[in-house]
Design a protein around this nucleic acid. Sequence first.
RNA 1: GGUCCGAUGGAUGAGUGGUUUAGUCACCGGUCUGCAAAACCGUCUACAGCGGUUCGAAUCCGCUUCGGACCU
Length: 304
Amino acid sequence: MSIKTLIVIVGPTGSGKTDLSIAVAEHFSAPIISTDSRQFYRGIPIGTAQPDAEQLQRVEHHFIASHDLTDEFNCGAYEVVALKRLNELFSQHDTVVAVGGSGLYVKALCEGMDDMPEVDAELRQRLAERLQNEGLELLAEELRQRDAEFYEVIDRKNPARVLRALEVCIATGKPYSSLRTGTKRVRDFNIVKIGTDMPRDILYDRIDRRVDIMVEQGLEAEARSVYHLREHNSLQTVGYREMFDYFDGTISREEAIELIKRNSRRYAKRQLTWFRRDREIEWFHPADKSDIIDYLETKICTLK
RNA sequence: GGUCCGAUGGAUGAGUGGUUUAGUCACCGGUCUGCAAAACCGUCUACAGCGGUUCGAAUCCGCUUCGGACCU
């Protein structure tokens, strides 16, 4: 059996990942698997910039509009289903393209997550209430008692991190840190990572323009149609939260659009921060398609 | 021509003699193993220019430049 290759395309939002992924997939006759934590969802194609009908028709896609907005989905569950799907795809293809800007999901797919038990919603809810009532410091103190080792290294000002560690400690009765191996899983396929980027000011212009296009395409109506599901995690998303605030009358339509642009720019910056520290990524301008194909072919050859 | 008002970091905006640069926002940098398009952290030392008073000025005085209002 020849060794299979997963081509991973990452980069900030609006940097041309989707177009590039189509070209790369066609070149290698490969299907595409999404690593975008929001394009999984059905019903929000405009605001999440899902590939359009023509692109979906040209290349076989997976994990695009595959889940309901009400589904509970996370990077751990994604790792399981994505690996399973990948395995199936590799039975018919030598190459698969993964594309998306969700760093943690890329990590889950390429390096794996440690096995952690499911935490039931009730416990999570209870901890959220305790955060409200008792405050972060008390919860951090409890974490210190349950897992002194992790307490030392965690960002204790970040409620999300403290809560996560605490819920695992409580659910398992073991220190969270004892369940973290810090090791990368070895995959039975090769991985080649490339990133798309461009000068910051140009990227920001593109992002701003893309938001305008989304609005023209009907982002507002799309947001309105899912407004009743706003509490779900799937809609804690740039483009929807701002529109919901506008619907609530908190801000004007113009303000909402400006905020969507600004928050998209910030998101792009955070993505760059995440991906920049991954030394495996080879960066390109998305327009340099022949350079990219050359690089990929050479790289795949040397790995074989 | 004259009178008056104003000029603070990318933006906004406090601060009328004295420990460290107010604050907010933006920008920039960073963190990251199950809500990740999330959550969080850090940095950014400016007082229009020149001169003077003073131990010490963004803060007082003078001149210059720029902006605004008004008068003739």
